[in-house]
């Protein structure tokens, strides 16, 4: 109870974390409540009359192919988040393993891992993802999409976590632990991990955000799962049908609002976590 109250009072002071969490909670709430009232089957094409502006029957209106846009949003938001979370977790997982290996063994291992990550980051990720997606064009599923995005999602985490591990090393944590007779894995899990947790968390959230961004990018380019109602695919159809020029505002307002909410939520959470990890920034906001 006491711990909970401490967390609450801290979140009260850490405004970014609070705002971010609230935004994401609002989205979850939208999806959960939405699922109670709408049938996500209506997110398929031809399940409603086409191009209806919002009305009592279709609160978010319908698109040209006859999808109920409320159903599309309720069904699509979790799909998009799923892509982000799968790719983000894989990326940070792989990245953390590589970073710990590099930071721990140093020398040649470190040089190789660092160079690969650095060079990999120079290459614009979206283009490589496009190349992969084009090569296996036989229409993707949401999960395959997540895996494709994950294939590059480890680069950034590797780089940032490695830098943190090295800083900790310099501060002598590792030497001290090694002197007291700890083994490699023990040092990583008992000494480094706890100190890195806020960083890992911040890296995870920003990776999820980057993965969502990449997936939406692929989708808008027409390389997404064609029959899944994800947020990115909705934007693809918006662009494809020139909904903006045609004045079908209800078609593009909801996906944009939701995507903006997702990114803002994740961004504020990252800022809040950064603040925990890096107290120096706390004073100067």
């Amino acid at each position: 109870m006491n711990a909970l109250r401490r967390v609450m009072s801290y979140t009260g002071r850490n405004r970014s974390l609070l705002v971010g969490t609230l935004l994401l909670l609002a989205l979850v709430l939208f999806v959960v409540i939405g699922r109670m009232f709408v049938d996500t089957e209506d997110a398929r094409a031809l399940s409603a009359p086409s191009l209806r502006p919002p009305s009592w029957d279709y609160p978010f209106g319908t698109d040209r192919q006859g999808r109920d846009l409320l159903a599309v949003m309720v069904a699509g938001t979790p799909l998009t988040l799923r892509i982000g979370f799968i790719a983000g977790f894989l990326g940070v997982g792989i990245g953390a393993v590589l970073a710990f290996t590099a930071g721990f063994y140093r020398g040649m291992t470190d040089t190789i891992i660092r160079s690969v990550a650095d060079i990999g980051l120079t290459v614009p990720g979206l283009l490589v993802l496009i190349l992969i997606a084009v090569s296996i064009k036989s229409s993707l599923t949401v999960n395959e999409m997540a895996l494709i995005v994950a294939s590059l999602a480890w680069l950034n985490p590797t780089r940032t976590i490695r830098a943190q591990v090295l800083t900790l090393r310099e501060r002598g944590y590792v030497e001290l632990a090694a002197m007291s007779g700890m083994g490699g894995l023990e040092i990583i899990f008992l000494e480094l991990m706890p100190n890195l947790l806020p960083y890992l968390a911040a890296t995870l959230v920003s990776s999820v955000s980057a993965a969502i961004l990449a997936s939406i990018g692929l989708e808008v380019l027409g390389l997404g799962p064609m029959d899944a109602p994800t947020l990115g695919m909705t934007l693809y159809w918006v662009n494809f049908n020139a909904a903006m020029i045609n004045g079908w505002w209800w078609w593009w307002v909801p996906p944009i609002v939701i995507i903006v909410t997702v990114f803002l939520g994740l961004f504020f959470v990252t800022m809040g976590l950064d603040e925990i990890a890096n107290p120096r920034l706390r004073k100067s906001t």
Partner: peptide, 17 residues
């Protein structure tokens, strides 16, 4: 230097829309 790739990825989509 590290962000150039990301900026370009973003610009691709800007050009598209």
């Amino acid at each position: 230097a590290l962000a150039l790739g990301q900026i370009l990825s973003g610009a691709v989509l800007v050009e598209v829309i």
